[in-house]
C-alpha cells in the first residue's frame, strides 16, 4: 500500500462527466499508462437510532474498496475507524434497530484503473442515487509509504495529466499528529474518499448528468 491522493476533478467547461472522464483516459494513455481492469469504492451512511448518553448522534459510514475485496471498513464520524471482514455488512443488517441505513445516501465511485510504472491511477465517476455527481481521481505511488517523502514527486506526476487542477497535500496526511513521515495505510485512502463523497453529497445535482 503506497501513498495515495484522492481528489475531485472539475467537469470540463461545456463537457459532460462522461466526456471529461474520457478526456482523462486519453491523457493517461498518451502518457503511456496501461489500462488494468476497473475499480469501485462505495460508502453507505447509518444513523444511530438510540442515543443513551444523550449526546448528539454520530454518523457511521460503512465503505468497501475493490482493492481490498475481503475487507469492509467502518468509520465513525471523527473516528474511531475499524477494518472488518466483508460480512460486517450482515452484522449491520442485524444491528438494524441501532443503526439505520440512510437510504438514498449511498455514494460510489466506479471507473477504470490505470498503471503507469509504479503509479496506480483510478479515474472514477462519482454517483449518488444513480446520477453522476462528479469525477474522482485517485493516484497511488506504490513504491513509497511515506507521504512526506514522495509528495512532490506525486505532484509532478499529477500535473502531467491533471494540468492546473492538481490538489494540495491531502489533509489526512498534514493533520496527523506524528507528522508526514509515518507510513500510510488504507484508512488514509478511505478517509480521503469519505471526504470527497461528503463534498459531493452537499453539491447541487449537475443538470443533465444521468449516468445511464
Amino acid at each position: 500500500m503506497g501513498v495515495t491522493c484522492v481528489c475531485q476533478v472539475p467537469v470540463a467547461e461545456g463537457k459532460s462527466v462522461q466526456q471529461t472522464v474520457e478526456q482523462l483516459h486519453k491523457k493517461l494513455e498518451q502518457l503511456g499508462a496501461m489500462k488494468q481492469g476497473s475499480f469501485f469504492v462505495d460508502c453507505e451512511t447509518y444513523h444511530a437510532t438510540s442515543n443513551a448518553s444523550g449526546q448528539p448522534s454520530k454518523l457511521l459510514y460503512v465503505m468497501h474498496n475493490s482493492e481490498t475485496p475481503l475487507s469492509c471498513l467502518a468509520l465513525f464520524e471523527g473516528g474511531p475507524f475499524l477494518t472488518a471482514d466483508a460480512n460486517f455488512d450482515v452484522l449491520m443488517v442485524k444491528l438494524k434497530s441501532h443503526f439505520q441505513n440512510a437510504k438514498g445516501h449511498k455514494v460510489e465511485s466506479r471507473g477504470a484503473r490505470y498503471r503507469y510504472c509504479d503509479f496506480l491511477v483510478k479515474v472514477g465517476t462519482v454517483t449518488m442515487s444513480s446520477s453522476a455527481r462528479g469525477i474522482s481521481v485517485e493516484v497511488e505511488y506504490c513504491a513509497c509509504v511515506v507521504p512526506g517523502d514522495c509528495w512532490n514527486l506525486m505532484k509532478e506526476f499529477m500535473q502531467s495529466f491533471l494540468g492546473s487542477s492538481v490538489p494540495e497535500l491531502p489533509a489526512v496526511f498534514s493533520s496527523k499528529p506524528e507528522g508526514l513521515f509515518v507510513p500510510t495505510d488504507c484508512m488514509d485512502t478511505m478517509s480521503q474518499y469519505l471526504e470527497l463523497f461528503s463534498k459531493v453529497r452537499k453539491q447541487q445535482v449537475l443538470p443533465g448528468s444521468s449516468v445511464r
Partner: peptide
Amino acid sequence: KLFQTPCQRCGRFL
C-alpha cells in the same frame, strides 16, 4: 532521499 531529490541534470522528479 530517493523520492525527495530531483535530478541534478534535468531538475525534474520523474
